Computed example of a mutant assay.
Amino acid sequence: MPTIDESIDIDVPISTAYDQWTQFEEFPQFMGGVDEVRQVSDTMTHWRTSIAGVDREFDAQITAQEPDRQISWRSVDGKTHEGNVTFEPLGATQTRVRVRTVWEPEGFTEKAGAALGADDRQVKADLKRFKEFIENRGVETGGWRGQV
């Protein structure tokens, strides 16, 4: 199974980066191929994606969430997809965001893309767009400080 591990340093306080990441319905603004994310409950999200011509819908459960530290998830619809995003303070106004995911590609297109490193490049590009999104705003669009 491919494992993706990418990080980026962002020029906002840790609480700003974390709070924005909890706004899952905003993900299409900076994640390529993500058409829609609906927050179904505090611990369940529904995703609609279109990546390299492959359309998917799936549910993901938040399995752990600690404010300003981490958010972990796993798919619950039979697909193998799980991950973790961590937040590390680099000072009062800078944060390192690290995304680690493991997933099982299906079909020729997904397997070829994984073998060629397209997944790593996609996550790296998504993190760069997240950085631009939150740094340009300067403040989060909302936040959820609950713990799972």
Rank of each mutant, 00 (worst) to 15 (best):
Q23I: 07
F30Q: 10
F27T: 09
F130H: 02
T95L: 03
T141A: 12
M31K: 11
H81V: 13
K124F: 11
I71L: 10
V139K: 08
I4L: 05
S7P: 09
A115D: 12
A17R: 02
T22E: 04
S7F: 06
F130I: 04
N136P: 00
T43N: 12
R38I: 15
G113W: 02
R96Q: 12
T16H: 08
D5N: 14
E88R: 01
D55M: 07
F58C: 10
V123N: 06
F133M: 03
E57T: 11
W47V: 06
T86E: 08
V12K: 02
G143C: 03
V76L: 03
S72L: 15
S75F: 00
K79A: 13
W47C: 04
D77W: 09
F30C: 13
G113I: 04
G143S: 05
G78A: 05
R69I: 08
T141K: 07
V34F: 00
T22D: 08
I134T: 06
S15I: 11
F27D: 11
D119F: 06
M44S: 10
P89M: 09
H81T: 11
W21T: 05
L90Y: 02
V97C: 07
T80P: 00
T109E: 12
R96M: 06
W73S: 07
G113D: 10
I51P: 03
R38G: 15
K111T: 15
L116W: 05
F58E: 07
V148P: 01
A115N: 10
G32Q: 14
N136Q: 12
S75P: 03
G142T: 05
R100P: 02
A125Q: 11
W47G: 05
Q70I: 13
N84W: 04
A92W: 03
L127C: 06
H46D: 13
T141S: 12
E104R: 12
S15C: 12
I10S: 08
W47F: 05
K131Q: 15
T95V: 06
K79G: 11
A115V: 09
R56P: 00
M44W: 10
I4R: 01
D126F: 01
K124C: 08
I51G: 07
G143H: 00
N136S: 12
T101V: 11
G107N: 09
G91D: 06
T95Y: 03
A60L: 10
F133P: 01
V99F: 01
P28D: 05
R74F: 00
E104Q: 13
I10D: 08
T43S: 15
T63D: 09
T63H: 08
G142L: 02
R69D: 14
T45E: 14
T86F: 04
